[in-house]
C-alpha cells in the first residue's frame, strides 16, 4: 500500500517536472544541425571530387583518403578547442559525421592526459566512442555473414 502511494506520488511529481521543464526550440536546433552537418558533408564531397580528379584515384581509394582528411580535421579542431563550440550550436549536425567521431576520441584523450599515457590517454580514449565501435563492428560482421549467404 505504502509503496503504491509512493509510485503515485512519483508519477504526479514527474508530471509537475515535465510541465515545468523548458521546451527546446526544435525548429532552430534542426536548422543548425542541418546547416552545419550539411556543410561538413559538402566539404567532404568537395575533397572527394578533387582527390578523385586530381590524383586520378578510384572512387573507393578517394573515399579512404577523404575519410582520413575529415578525421584529421575533426581531431585538429578538437585540439585547438573549436569543435566543442561548433557542437554546442550544431548538436547532431557535428556529432553524426566522422569529424564528430574524431572529436569523441580525441576529447577524452586530451582530458585524461594528466593521468598518464597508459591509464589516462590510452585507457580513456574510447570511453565515449567505445560502444559505437563495439556495436558498429559487431553489426557489420553480422550483416556481412547474412550477405554472404543470401547473395
Amino acid at each position: 500500500m505504502a509503496r503504491r502511494m509512493k509510485t503515485q506520488e512519483k508519477k504526479e511529481f514527474q508530471k509537475l517536472v515535465d510541465s515545468n521543464n523548458p521546451k527546446p526550440n526544435l525548429l532552430l536546433n534542426c536548422f543548425w544541425a542541418f546547416s552545419v552537418g550539411g556543410l561538413i558533408c559538402i566539404v567532404g564531397q568537395f575533397l572527394h571530387n578533387t582527390i578523385e580528379s586530381v590524383f586520378k584515384l578510384s572512387h573507393l581509394e578517394s573515399t579512404n583518403v577523404t575519410t582520413l582528411i575529415m578525421i584529421f580535421i575533426g581531431a585538429f579542431l578538437t585540439g585547438i578547442g573549436v569543435y566543442d563550440k561548433i557542437g554546442k550550436v550544431a548538436g547532431a549536425g557535428s556529432i553524426v559525421p566522422i569529424t564528430g567521431f574524431a572529436n569523441s576520441v580525441v576529447s577524452p584523450a586530451m582530458e585524461f592526459k594528466r593521468e598518464g599515457f597508459i591509464f589516462g590517454v590510452a585507457a580513456k580514449m574510447f570511453s565515449i566512442a567505445g560502444p559505437v565501435l563495439v556495436y558498429g563492428i559487431t553489426t557489420s560482421v553480422i550483416v556481412g555473414i547474412v550477405y554472404y549467404f543470401i547473395r
Binding site: N21, P22, P24, T78, G79, G81, Y83, D84, K85, I86, G87, K88, A90, G91, S94, I95, G100, N103, S104, V106, S107, P108, M110, E111, F112, I128
Partner: peptide, 15 residues
Amino acid sequence: RQFRYPLELGNQRSL
C-alpha cells in the same frame, strides 16, 4: 570530467 564528459567534446547541454 568526473561526472559528465570531456571539456572538448562537442555536445549540447540541456536547457
